[in-house]
Each structure stands twice: as C-alpha cells, then as structure tokens.
C-alpha cells in the first residue's frame, strides 16, 4: 500500500498495486497503457493492457495523471 499526498489538490490518496507501479513506470516519460504494460514486464499482453488502461482512467479521475491528446 502506498500513501500519496497530492500537493496541488491537497488530497491524500491510498494507492494499491498496480497504481503505484503505473506511476513509477510513468517516471520514464508519458506513455499509453500498452507502453506502460511493456515497462512493467507485460509486453504483448492484451489483458494486462486492459487492466492498466482501467487503472490509468482511475488515476486520471483522481487527478494523479493527465491524459494528453
């Protein structure tokens, strides 16, 4: 479990895997779900990409990641 304080919003978030892993994977730069899956060792794994995409949407909803065009 990871506790994250988001300074811009003043909100605290409790993150369970794989949310912290996804944030860590984004340290290497912006990426889509497929690229993040690769970074986490799930290359060519469609099911993993679907799960990561769902988690990304959740992180975006929480304001912890920004979705670009």
């Amino acid at each position: 479990m990871t506790i994250l304080y988001h300074r811009p919003s003043g909100m605290t978030h409790v993150l369970l895997p794989p949310a912290p892993n996804i944030l860590a994977a984004l340290d290497a730069g912006p990426a889509d779900a497929a690229r993040i899956a690769e970074r986490l060792g799930f290359a060519a794994d469609d099911e993993a990409v679907d799960v990561i995409a769902a988690r990304l949407a959740e992180l975006a909803q929480s304001g912890l990641v920004a979705i670009e065009d």
Partner: peptide, 19 residues
C-alpha cells in the same frame, strides 16, 4: 505473481481521503 499484482480491471486501486 505479476498477474496478482495487476489485479482485475474492475478492482479499484485508488482511495482518496478528502480534506
């Protein structure tokens, strides 16, 4: 083990504690 780390698509993993 990796699959367990990922969990299910429907399983929420972010809980926000509001001020």
């Amino acid at each position: 083990r990796r699959r367990l780390m990922l969990g299910a698509a429907a399983a929420s993993t972010v809980v926000t504690i509001r001020p």
